[in-house]
Design a protein around this nucleic acid. Structure first.
Lengths: 157, 157
DNA sequence: GTCAGTGCAAAAGATTTGCATGCGA
DNA sequence: TCGCATGCAAATCTTTTGCACTGAC
C-alpha cells in the first residue's frame, strides 16, 4: 500500500509530467482524498475539502477527481444506489472486493485469494487473459438482521 | 430460462397480487423489455416502446421499469458512463456472470458453481446473508490476442 | 506576462414528482 | 363510479461547461 505522502507525491509528479499546474485547490482536494479510506461521493469530498480550504468550488472537485482518475490514483465505482463514489486506487497486490448491506448500505471490503485464483482459472479456461475484475456481493449484515429492523438506515440521498 | 410469455405472465400476476392495474402502457413496456436481450437504458426502452405504442410517456417507462425491478424481473446496472441500464433478470438457477474482452468488447457469460459457493462462504464469514452478487471479469480474449491487434473494436457508445 | 485553473452560475442530462385527466376493475 | 395510472411539465439531482477573473510558472 502506498502511503498518503507517496500518493500525493505521485500526483504532483503526474501533474508536472502532463505540464499541468499545482494549485492550492488541487493540493487540498488530493490531500483530503488520500487521507480518507472511505468510498467518497463527490459531495462527501467537497464537504471535507472545504473544512481544510473553503476556497474550493464544486466544479474544481469534479475536475480534480477526474485528474486523479487519469493518474490512476482514484477508482470510480458505481454501486447499486446510483451514487458515483471514489476510492483510493489499489496497487496490484492490494486488490479488494466489496460486500454491501442492502439495508444500512454499509460497505465491507474483503480479499480472498481463493476467489482471485478461481477467477483466473475461469478466465483462462474461456481463453481470456484476465486484466482485472469487479465484484460486489449484496446481502444483509448481521447488525441489520439482529437489530430486528433496527439497522441504521442511511438518510435518503 | 423463463420464456418471454412466462415473464409477461409473471408480471401480470405480480400486478394483480399487489392490487395494481394492468394497462396498455405497462403491457407494452413489459413486452418490449422482455423481448430484448440487450442491456437497455431507459431511453432505449422508451424509443422501442413508442414504436409499438406511441401513447407512452417517459415517466411511465421509469415507473414501470421500477415495477419490474420490484418484481425481480429486471436487473439494474450502473455502468461507467453514468447511464443506468436494465436487463432481464436471471432466475436463480440461471444465474450467470460476465467475462468481457477489453478489446473487442465481446461478452462471454459463464457460471461456475465453485464461485457461487465461495462467495456464499465469504459473505457468511463476514456476517452477511447473501442476497445476490455482481461480477465482471475483464481481459483480452484469445481471438484478440492471436489476431495481433486485429480484434474489431466496437464504436464508442 | 501568459495562459491554465478557478468560482460561479447556467446548462445539460437523468430521474422524480405534482396535478389534472383518463381509464381499468 | 372510484381510484389508480398516465402524460406533461416542472422540480430535483448530478455533472459539465462558458466565461471573466486569478494566480502559478
Amino acid at each position: 500500500m502506498q502511503s498518503r505522502s507517496e500518493r500525493f507525491a505521485a500526483f504532483r509528479r503526474a501533474l508536472k509530467d502532463k505540464g499541468l499546474k499545482s494549485t492550492a485547490q488541487r493540493d487540498a482536494i488530493a490531500q483530503t482524498f488520500f487521507a480518507t479510506t472511505r468510498h467518497m461521493s463527490i459531495d462527501d469530498l467537497y464537504q471535507e475539502v472545504r473544512k481544510a480550504n473553503p476556497r474550493v468550488g464544486y466544479a474544481t472537485v469534479y475536475r480534480t477527481i477526474k485528474l486523479l482518475k487519469d493518474c490512476e490514483l482514484a477508482d470510480e465505482r458505481h454501486f447499486a444506489d446510483g451514487q458515483t463514489r471514489y476510492e483510493n486506487a489499489d496497487s496490484e497486490e492490494d486488490h479488494h472486493d466489496h460486500l454491501i448491506c442492502d439495508k444500512c448500505e454499509k460497505i465491507v471490503e474483503f480479499n480472498d485469494q481463493r476467489l482471485e485464483l478461481l477467477q483466473e482459472e475461469i478466465a483462462t479456461n474461456l481463453g481470456f487473459v484476465l486484466a482485472r475484475h469487479r465484484m460486489e456481493l449484496y446481502g444483509i449484515c448481521r447488525e441489520c438482521r439482529e437489530g430486528a429492523g433496527g439497522g441504521r438506515r442511511r438518510p435518503e440521498r
